[in-house]
Nucleic acid binder design. Structure first.
Lengths: 348, 348
DNA sequence: ATGAAAGCGCTAACAT
DNA sequence: ATGTTAGCGCTTTCAT
């Protein structure tokens, strides 16, 4: 029951009484092989339980491996799962296999993982950059022709293709929706760290919407959280202000969960909410949650298509480009709760 | 700007004027190297942008790769994301990297993916089996000492370790909770296909709970769906029965989403619900959703620990074993809605 | 239709 | 402290 050595091509060849090359031919179907030999080889392969060693093959063939490496900050976040699904759908018929690993939002681990993928010679590298990560070390790889695409957030220290949501416009639309329904004190609960690209962009959209409406920016209404629990805390702190907000804008899905949970817990049905990124049960909430929906599958498909084009030698655009996938405001009700003024008018 | 050949160990060696082995020593830190040589080598590595080819290394060293392959049916399902997170936490300090790929619940793709992992000589293979998949082809691999662990559902055609939730007991508890609150007509909306392990087990728990309460099993109350939309349909069909259920038991998280969405849409607050597997916004619903919570992180950790023990030569149990991770009933309110009889009593 | 030899990039084992 | 040789498992090249 000891761990037996795995059979190799040579073992199969010996078993049948042919050369290793012949076995190789049968398995890869290149050269001509007599039907009889083929059968014998196949039989021996099955009997010995031979499994070709792809590493050995790749090393000889020299080309990249038929895998594509994807680094995400969090395996549990369905947003990245959906992105991965979109990538897979696109690369599958090319015979490429998507391998996904987590950086846990840690720049060091992100780097480790990218190095591991590169050392295993993936055909394409895709990265959702962690906050604070630098990507200049990928320059030499790009020079060798390896397609590198950054997802959800652009790269730092390297010029490369990236695919992102229309964060600024999306956040603007969401906040404008609140303003259109009479809200003038609107709290913003964003991601952490504050330097995170998506947070900056979405905050920028928030501010531009306020500006257009002639509403002065009040820094005390801008807070952050890096998880659901923190977002719940941020929510109760905002509501405890002397001049509290009548509406909240959630900077991402995690934050939205925290806000909704906290409002539910404290029975504050009078607070309007719009969230960036859709949530599974958004429609079933009362009121149903209005969101700025992203399209993660489309982000994945776009990223994959971009990378495949590069792989096929797309030199049409030497310069790298940033592709923006549009968001869509889905009005479900939670943004329409009357602001105090209107509420007063209604009850009069 | 053409795709330059990647530099190899030999290139670095030539650049510095030492042998390849010396460069290897510097990079892997085994043999002794003079500080001066080390510096020169490191400089050349940086300058040439050399990246070791791990495939070449692995093939020479002979051992398995420092990766662990995980096959899941759906990258977008947070349940599997959480499982993956638990695995990663456990294997990280062993220097193992988790690589995850999707079978899309398709036995053929599951097999393709496992073959790819095996051909790349992963140290450990973990699989969430697709419905209908057979795993007898993995026997020879287990014989070579490769740890194989099945997650969420046991393997077919091979004896191997597996880690699953307490599906039967969990479903039993959930249904018993409904019965305790006066319900006697309880609909079951399960996964598809009907042969799926988790569905069978949970249905079994449902039936045993009914049996214990002396409630006759009514086949017309048992339905299935394979996605959220189908679950919504199943829900409205159940409610349209001549003698409709007063409570519903959701067989998994997707189904729960469909049920909750449909009840919300049709404003049926009078229907009690208990779901198998927790949902992010469960607490924020009205009423809050009572669930039989699984512990996906713990499932992942357990699976990883089991595999690592095998990797370390745990022959203490030659026979494979199935480890059950307990579920926990979290009562939040949705299971307590009065059944018609009690409702009548209350309003009298 | 098949085989022999060489070599992919790297490291183990033995030099020196 | 460093170099040489051989070889991991496979495929390419060139024979036969």
């Amino acid at each position: 029951m000891a761990a037996n050595r795995r059979p190799t091509l040579a073992d199969v060849a010996r078993e049948v009484g042919v050369s290793a090359k012949t076995v190789s031919r049968v398995l890869n179907g290149d050269g001509p092989v007599s039907p009889r030999t083929r059968e014998q080889v196949l039989a021996a392969v099955a009997e010995l339980g031979f499994q070709p060693n792809l590493m050995a093959r790749n090393i000889r063939v020299g080309g990249p491996d038929t895998t594509i490496g994807l680094v995400v900050p969090d395996l549990g976040n369905p947003f990245f799962g959906a992105v991965a699904g979109g990538i897979e759908d696109t690369v599958r018929d090319r015979g490429l296999t998507l391998l996904m690993g987590s950086s846990a939002e840690d720049p060091d681990r992100e780097r480790d993982l990218t190095e591991k993928f590169l050392a295993r010679r993936v055909s394409i590298l895709m990265v959702v950059p962690s906050a604070g990560a630098d990507h200049s070390h990928l320059r030499t790889h790009r020079a060798t022709g390896l397609p590198v695409v950054f997802i959800d957030r652009p790269a730092v220290g390297i010029s490369a293709d990236s695919v992102v949501s229309s964060n600024r416009a999306g956040a603007h639309d969401g906040v404008a929706h609140l303003i259109a329904h009479g809200h003038r004190r609107i709290g913003f609960v964003g991601d952490l760290p504050a330097k995170l690209y998506t947070r900056r962009e979405r905050l920028s959209g928030y501010r531009s919407a306020l500006r257009e409406a002639g509403i002065a920016h009040d820094r005390s209404l801008v807070t952050s959280a890096h998880d659901q629990h923190g977002a719940a805390d941020a929510t109760s702190q905002l509501l405890a202000l002397a001049d509290p907000p009548t509406a909240l804008f959630a900077g991402n899905n995690m934050v939205a969960l925290g806000i909704v949970a906290e409002l539910s817990r404290s029975k504050r049905k009078d607070i309007a909410v719009v969230a960036f990124d859709d949530l599974p049960l958004a429609e079933a909430l009362e009121p149903a949650l209005t969101v700025v929906a992203q399209d993660p599958e489309e982000i994945g498909r776009t990223a994959a298509a971009t990378a495949l084009a590069r792989l096929d030698g797309d030199r049409s655009r030497t310069r790298s480009r940033t592709i923006t996938v549009p968001t869509r405001l889905i009005v479900r009700g939670s943004g329409e709760r009357p602001a105090p003024a209107m509420q007063g008018a209604a009850s009069n």
